[in-house]
Design a binder for these strands. Structure first.
Length: 552
RNA sequence: GGCGGCGUAGCUCAGCUGGUCAGAGCGGGGAUCUCAUAAGUCCCAGGUCGGAGGUUCGAGUCCUCCCGCCGCCA
């Protein structure tokens, strides 16, 4: 069965398509959420919100938790509870992550849900009926902790205190043992050409670095058959293989089907939303999503995803994040200091998909204070203060006064920046370059501050003959804030909402089209009242004992 | 060992297709302003673009070799 037979037309899904389906990985419940989990969710949420800024449609955003496997059995036992209760508890932490950080998912899938089991069974039977599952005796080195078969190159020898040698996983350090057993197998090699073809399409995997890694993997020689079940005697917390109670479905097959579960695989609605538009993943699970997953899908006669966005990891103060180093960054704890939008901003502003980011609290504080409190928040305050804006309005402007102000080079630059900003952001968001989009927005806000400084409205205020020019300065600056606010909604939804509320932008006027219609071109513009509340977009972060040097 | 990715100012990045032999933000220093979230604006310092060689009138950008980091495979 050839992949060429189905529709892989290159398309820019960032346009206002009728449908959009974005996914995060489902998070393994062996541990609480950390900054890396948040990063995946925030990226997916930004993509989802951007789609909404572009326009209405049938959208779906799935996330969830991966709850099966022997590690969960062990973790539950360690916590003196059963796997089901244990999973419910930790899964609720991931739901809380989404709630705290405004992750606007539509579907939360738990692999222990009955609906998911139905989908896994259905998928299994489809693969089986297509002759893609066969039973075979399998022998190899097996790591119980990691629940994986390993090749000999992945092993190391370890000498114990008594001089005895044991074989361990080279990667995790956990012990391995030689196992011979009967498992169900899947012929990865039979889909290799199709997967290679899919990988070569332009947007299949982004950034290109990860696309090349995958192409390298599938171009090296035939892919092996892989085991897709485990004996139930060893792994009983999972989904039973249909019609064979002695085997449990391999956790990766189980987990990957969650995306189908979210899309309505067990009932007829799947094709209303399938295939996924973007699947967001971390680089540690690249092989499963970039080779296994499309192989399974193609074998089952389903389209692979239109795009996989693979992001890199976060180091912490230059070191890999790990429990043993005790440097795992807890997003809940950090959000209490930096706010949820603040943490979102930092991750999307500082993170680039192609290389590891470095998390540092010093950097977080500096970026948030400089850009959210100062550049953005202070600019709003300059416009809304009663000294310059006693009537608390977003004023209408007179054409002659506008022309007078617009003749300045600084004003021309600002108007050009604001006019081109929506399309520039469109380009960057479409290519998943959030940091470039944010960079342009911040640059535009700097230009607005320069414009404000150039025209010195606090001096215009003193001359009654210059009141109309003062209105123009306030108007242009508030309009810049309005456009920037619309474009920042995917990044900092709450701060953007507060900003747009303050300048009285109607909720239904916060779309990409609204960002393109500029007030000085809008003959129907009506003077707007600013909201009465004293809006503080972002409170500057000051740590105890950290006293800023006062300037003279 | 083979293959792939990366290496640009203290930090994070831009600089795609060879052409002011280099920019931005943050951080640092100075000046100035007072509308404003003690904010804004301006100026300055910081660069062997990992190293060496080559192609070219001209290379951060192309080629070769070497060094370092990361990943995959053996």
């Amino acid at each position: 069965m050839s992949i060429r037979s189905f529709n892989l037309i290159k398309r820019n899904y960032s346009q206002s398509n009728s449908k959009f389906f974005v996914t995060t990985p489902i998070y393994y419940v062996n541990a609480s959420p950390h900054i890396g989990h948040l990063y995946s969710s925030v990226i997916a949420d930004a993509l989802y919100r951007w789609q909404q800024v572009l326009g209405a449609g049938k959208f779906k955003f799935s996330t969830g938790t991966d709850e099966h496997g022997s590690k969960i059995q062990q973790a539950a036992h360690k916590n003196n509870t059963n796997p089901s209760d244990y999973c419910t508890r930790v899964s609720s932490d991931y739901k809380r992550l989404s709630e705290v950080f405004s992750i606007s998912y539509t579907d939360f899938v738990r692999t222990s849900d009955e609906e998911h089991k139905k989908c896994v069974h259905k998928f299994w039977n489809v693969l089986k009926n297509k002759g893609k599952i066969f039973s075979s005796k399998y022998a190899g080195w097996y790591c119980i902790s990691d629940e994986s078969f390993l090749t000999e190159s992945q092993l190391k020898e370890k000498v114990g205190p008594d001089g005895r040698k044991t074989i361990i996983s080279g990667e995790s350090g956990h012990p391995v043992e030689w196992i011979e057993e009967v498992n169900y197998m899947f012929p990865l090699g039979s889909l290799q050409d199709d997967v290679k073809y899919w990988l070569r399409s332009e947007n299949a995997v982004r950034p290109a670095k990860f696309q090349k890694i995958l192409l390298d993997m599938v171009s090296k020689g035939p892919l092996p058959d892989i085991s897709i079940s485990r004996p139930a005697s060893r792994v009983h917390w999972g989904i039973q293989v249909p019609d064979d109670e002695t085997q449990t479905v391999y956790v990766w097959l189980d987990a990957l089907v969650n995306y189908l579960t979210a899309a309505g695989y067990s009932h007829a609605s799947l094709h209303q939303i399938w295939p996924p538009s973007v699947q967001v993943i971390g680089k540690d699970i690249l092989k499963f999503h970039g080779i296994y997953w499309p192989s399974f899908l193609i074998a089952a006669g389903l389209d692979p995803p239109l795009s996989i966005l693979c992001h890199s990891h976060w180091t912490v103060d230059g070191e890999k994040m790990s429990k043993s180093k005790n440097n795992v960054v807890c997003p809940f704890q950090r959000s209490e200091i930096y706010s949820s939008d603040g943490l979102r901003y930092f991750l999307l502003r500082e993170g680039v998909a192609h290389s590891d980011g470095n998390y540092s609290d010093t950097k977080v504080i500096r970026i948030l204070n400089s850009e959210l409190a100062d550049t953005l928040g202070n600019l709003l305050s300059r416009c809304c203060g009663t000294a310059l804006n006693p009537h608390q309005t977003f004023p209408k402007i007179e054409a002659s006064a506008f022309e007078s102000v617009a003749s300045s080079d600084v004003t021309k630059k600002l108007i050009e920046d604001v006019a081109t900003l929506p399309d520039v952001c469109m380009g960057h968001y479409s290519n998943f370059n959030f940091y470039k989009a944010v960079d342009r927005v911040i640059a535009t806000l700097h230009q607005a501050n320069l414009f404000f400084e150039t025209f010195k409205p606090w001096e215009l205020k003193k001359e009654s003959a210059k009141t109309r020019e003062l209105d123009v300065v306030l108007h242009l600056t508030l309009e810049t804030l309005r456009v920037c606010g619309i474009l920042l909604q995917p990044i900092i939804p709450n701060i953007a909402s507060n900003l747009l509320n303050k300048i009285n932008v109607a909720r239904e006027r916060r779309t990409f089209s609204d960002a393109k219609i500029l007030s000085w071109d809008d003959t129907n513009f009506v003077r707007k009242e600013l909201a009465k509340d004293k809006t503080l977009l972002f409170k500057r972060i000051v740590l105890e004992g950290d006293r800023k040097k006062t300037k003279q």
